[in-house]
Amino acid sequence: MWDESTGLMLLQGVGESLYMTLVSTVFAYLIGLPIGVFLVTSAKDGIRPRALLFKILDVIVNLTRSIPFLILLVAILPFTRLVTGTTIGSTAAIVPLTLSAAPFIARLVESSLKEVDAGIVEAAQSMGASNFQIVRKVLLPEAKPSLLVGGAIAVTTVLGYSAMAGFVGGGGLGAIATNYGYYRFQNGIMLITVVFLVLIVQIFQGIGMKIAISLDRRK
């Protein structure tokens, strides 16, 4: 069982896992970041309170976050086929991964932006900054270290979900663990995939924290 093909397969698994994780995270940020910003600006104490819109979005985010990932993955199979033309493999897994990570990321972004002192926002308003300028030049840059920490959390969470996607034909390390370890009882290979996953999480978390700390000017 320990031949060259096993090694290649594991390497390919790592590659697929990284591909799914990173692409999904990027897409999820494209959706989640604006939603997170809107959750902060439209809140009651935000720079542009919109009570009804805030409430609607708040409920939608909570609803989508409470759907278990595996259920979501199966439920949106028709949509996944519509987007990617297939329902199996790594590319297909990106669709449910993105949709499930986006509301989670929206909450991460929301909590990061809320850490910015309201006084700084008020100072910007007193200088005649528009709401757009406040988001772009005050909220996002001031929350940058916290956003990066959130980014590391998001990537590692998506990696965990991507392993779950492997269970239902998603590819990557999760698929290898399922096919060899779970169905064929090859515990060695399963253990190796788990070790790889742990290592990847460690690396992403470590890099994320390092960048966040090195960019933070508050020390």
């Binding site: 002192d117 006084g119 700084i120 008020e122 100072a123 308003q125 007193s126 200088m127 005649g128 900054a129 528009s130 005050v138 840059p141 001031e142 940058k144 270290p145 933070d216 000017r217 508050r218």
Partner: peptide, 23 residues
């Protein structure tokens, strides 16, 4: 229009309210 007028009125605060990530 208000944003324009605010530029002719500076304001300082008890807690300074400087942007912490800027020099």
């Amino acid at each position: 229009e208000l944003r324009k007028v605010r530029r002719s009125m500076g304001m300082i605060f008890q807690q300074f309210n400087l942007l912490l990530q800027r020099t």
